[in-house]
Design a protein around this nucleic acid. Structure first.
Lengths: 146, 146
DNA sequence: CTCCTAATTGAGACTGAGTCGCAGTAGCAT
DNA sequence: ATGCTACTGCGACTCAGTCTCAATTAGGAG
């Protein structure tokens, strides 16, 4: 697994290549995002930064998250139709995976399946569809809740 | 495939069983929803009703859609992380299916796979997770767009 | 190091989907 | 027909996310 520093400089290279500036706010956000191992929403991110003494406005949080997505450090996920706020996750700590979400207690279980992935590729082939990303979510009841 | 009338009376039975009333607005909304064979959002539904001379307020649209979901006539789907408005579809015309969404032109291709479904059930078993519903969306480029 | 300019920031106004409270309306059981 | 409730529409409200704009700052040129 690559070190965080590598990823930070990947982001800096991205900024430079786009003629964007490397500001205190952007660095702080990138650093924080890479440390969060869970799903997070913009508000959580802001409050975690604030608790470390870094004040960043809501607008900057959103703007920087977009850059982090474009640069490949962060991925946007939607946990369920019911969630009204967007969720994000960083792409280092969290490899590709799908979600099972418990309707009872809200716990999120992650899973992957190579078999499903390859069936999926097969289906895309049939439709001459070139897949870029996908989400696969199962809602139901976990062991404890049914 | 069951006739629409059946479904309408299923809805009426549901209303009655809940001590809810069968109003002109609810009937009009149910009738219209069963005729739409595409995905739709609340606004489209409202404008289709209006063009038929039935004026129904936004609040009633939302309230009735919730009842239609509870009664099983309608299903809520989210087409993509990017869509900010909710999408719905009726459950008769549209059986269970997954979506491929083209990032280029927005076209939605539907697919199903029994193999994927059973792999999915297997995975749920392993986690002692009782599935209720799921969504599986692939974003990418369709034949025409890549 | 200083200057200069374009990019960035924060504050707050704004937008648009969805919800809520309330006063008037209308099912429906008797 | 009456009366009890649920229902409707309206408009106010909420809340995530976006946008505008004036003030600030990064960072390259000199």
């Amino acid at each position: 697994m690559p070190a965080q520093g590598d990823k930070i400089s990947q982001f800096e290279r991205y900024l430079q290549s786009q003629g964007l500036k490397s500001t205190r706010e952007r660095k702080a956000i990138a650093r924080e995002v890479l440390v969060i191992s869970e799903h997070f929403d913009p508000e959580l991110l802001q409050s975690r930064l604030r608790s470390k003494g870094t004040r960043v406005s809501r607008a900057t949080i959103y703007r920087t998250l977009d850059h982090l997505i474009t640069s490949g450090l962060v991925r946007k996920t939607s946990l369920d139709v019911e969630h009204k706020t967007a969720f994000y996750e960083n792409t280092i700590v969290r490899g590709h995976h799908e979600h099972m979400v418990c309707i009872g207690c809200g716990i999120v279980i992650e899973f992957t399946s190579d078999e499903i992935e390859s069936l999926q590729d097969e289906i895309c082939d049939n439709y001459r569809f070139k897949p870029v990303r996908h989400t696969h979510q199962i809602m139901g009841y976990c062991r404890k809740c049914h």
